[in-house]
């Protein structure tokens, strides 16, 4: 199962790196590769924080790619790949810290299935959002943004509880 996590991390680093390299932005490509490599190294040592930093960095670089006029599909794929790698890293580390895991293979399979469904839905929604274009006025954007912020605050409050 560690191979699955490693593949996910490599993919998370590689997808934005290829996108940046294709656009001739070698510095950003290198940064993505380094983030992926550091994440992988951290996992080998059983550390959690390189994964957290790598995830945030790769999501940030995916956003930057969109702002830098790279194809938004690359950014979406990068975010999804980073999310998968981050989730699998956390799952692997949680299992590693436990004395005994009952039917580990079944747990992995079930988790991978759930994750695939969730990320698949996210990707589909994201792709739809990229393809469907609706013109909104500034007021609507502001209102929707406020609603989003309020909703997210509620989510955070719920998570805290």
């Amino acid at each position: 199962m560690s191979r699955l996590v490693a593949i996910a991390i490599v993919a998370a680093g590689l997808i934005p790196a290829v996108a940046y390299a294709g656009a001739g932005r070698l510095t950003e490509a290198l940064l993505c590769a380094i983030a992926g490599a550091a994440w992988l190294g951290g996992l080998r040592r059983g550390l959690g924080w390189p994964g957290t930093v790598g995830f945030l960095l790769l999501v940030g670089l995916a956003g930057f790619a969109v702002l830098s006029s790279l194809a938004p599909a690359w950014g979406l794929a990068s975010v999804a790949a980073a999310l998968v790698a981050w989730d699998l890293t956390g799952f692997a580390l949680r299992l590693q810290a436990i004395g005994r895991v009952v039917d580990e293979e079944r747990l992995w399979r079930a988790h991978a299935r759930r994750l695939a469904a969730v990320v698949g839905a996210g990707l589909a929604l994201g792709a739809a959002a990229l393809l469907v274009r609706i013109e909104l006025g500034f007021i609507w954007v502001l209102l929707l943004g406020l609603a989003g912020v309020v909703a997210l605050s509620r989510v955070v409050a719920t998570l805290k509880n």
Partner: peptide, 9 residues
Amino acid sequence: ALALPLLVY
């Protein structure tokens, strides 16, 4: 749109 996978998660 990039935020959507995270939101769904």
